[in-house]
Design a protein around this nucleic acid. Structure first.
Length: 266
DNA sequence: ATGCCCGGTCTTACCGGA
């Protein structure tokens, strides 16, 4: 079984590329983030024709997460129980965004996650990001406490670079989001809760990234960030036989700014 | 080495991305 996560940065702008990639790489399950469309705009037919069922949640042109599977897709859940909401206007009511969808595939409870960016360290979005991660960790800890043998995979764009090795230049990110200590603490809390990074042992750094900014020749200069992760419960981690980051998929015209992260299971 | 931003929209300006 092969499972992958990919921030596709618009599923409509890249449908051909995504469906071609699925077929070419023999991937059974793909968690997508930043689909950037409403449910009624999602190109379901293209995935169905290729043999994949899709569960998607998209409420506007922002965010949007999905899981595509050719090995079944059960018990779809939009959002996690304590998922916080957000509103740019602090006076207005915070609403839950399309940043989390869960489904059971091949015996694995998969969550496709798009963690809030945070924007600036002084922005309310940063507070939202930290709370979002804390609530997810609390809920995920509960899922595992209720069933220590559960195969759970928390996958997606975490928008955190947990170590200095995970960015091309730590000095460049001083005073910015993604590398601050509170964000790193929030990310590390998942390991403490029993969810391990199953990719890093198979794709060690330095210089190994999953995202490269479109500007300033970041990709050819190999100036990227490792912010997309597959965190697995012990029973999930035990099934992992290999993993890699498909850097080639970042090449060429029409690429997402993120590469797919691929995990192979028994 | 795979190229000097790219999606989206209430589109020709601006928001969000990281």
């Amino acid at each position: 079984m092969r499972i992958a996560t990919w921030n596709v940065n618009s599923v409509r702008a890249r449908t051909d590329r995504i469906v071609d990639w699925l077929a070419r790489t023999d991937t059974d399950v793909l968690a997508m983030q930043e689909t950037k469309c409403k449910d009624e705009q999602f190109p379901y037919e293209r995935f169905t024709e290729a043999g994949y069922e899709v569960a998607h949640v998209g409420l506007s042109q922002w965010n949007g997460v999905a899981i595509a599977s050719r090995i079944g897709l059960e018990d779809v859940q939009v959002g996690f129980a304590d998922q916080p909401g957000f509103n740019k206007d602090p006076e207005a009511e915070a609403t839950r965004e399309a940043r989390a969808i869960g489904a059971t595939v091949g015996g694995v409870r998969v969550w496709s996650l798009y963690v809030p960016n945070g924007r600036e360290l002084t922005d309310p979005h940063y507070v939202y990001k930290l709370e979002w991660l804390a609530k997810l960790r609390a809920d995920a800890e509960g899922w595992l406490a209720g069933n220590p043998d559960a195969q759970i995979a928390l996958v997606g764009d975490w928008n955190v670079a947990p170590t200095d090795e995970d960015v091309w230049d730590p000095a460049f990110f001083e005073g910015k989001t993604h590398t601050s200590q509170p964000e790193r603490d929030a990310f590390d809390a998942f390991a403490e809760a029993g969810f391990a990074d199953v990719v890093r042992p198979h794709a060690p750094g330095p210089g190994v990234y999953t995202y490269w900014d479109y500007t300033q020749l970041r990709f050819p200069k190999r100036q990227g960030m490792r912010i997309d992760y597959v965190l697995g419960s012990p029973a999930f981690a035990a099934r992992v036989t290999g993993a890699h980051i498909d850097r080639d998929e970042r090449k060429g015209k029409g690429a997402s700014d993120h590469a797919p992260v691929v995990v192979d299971l028994t």
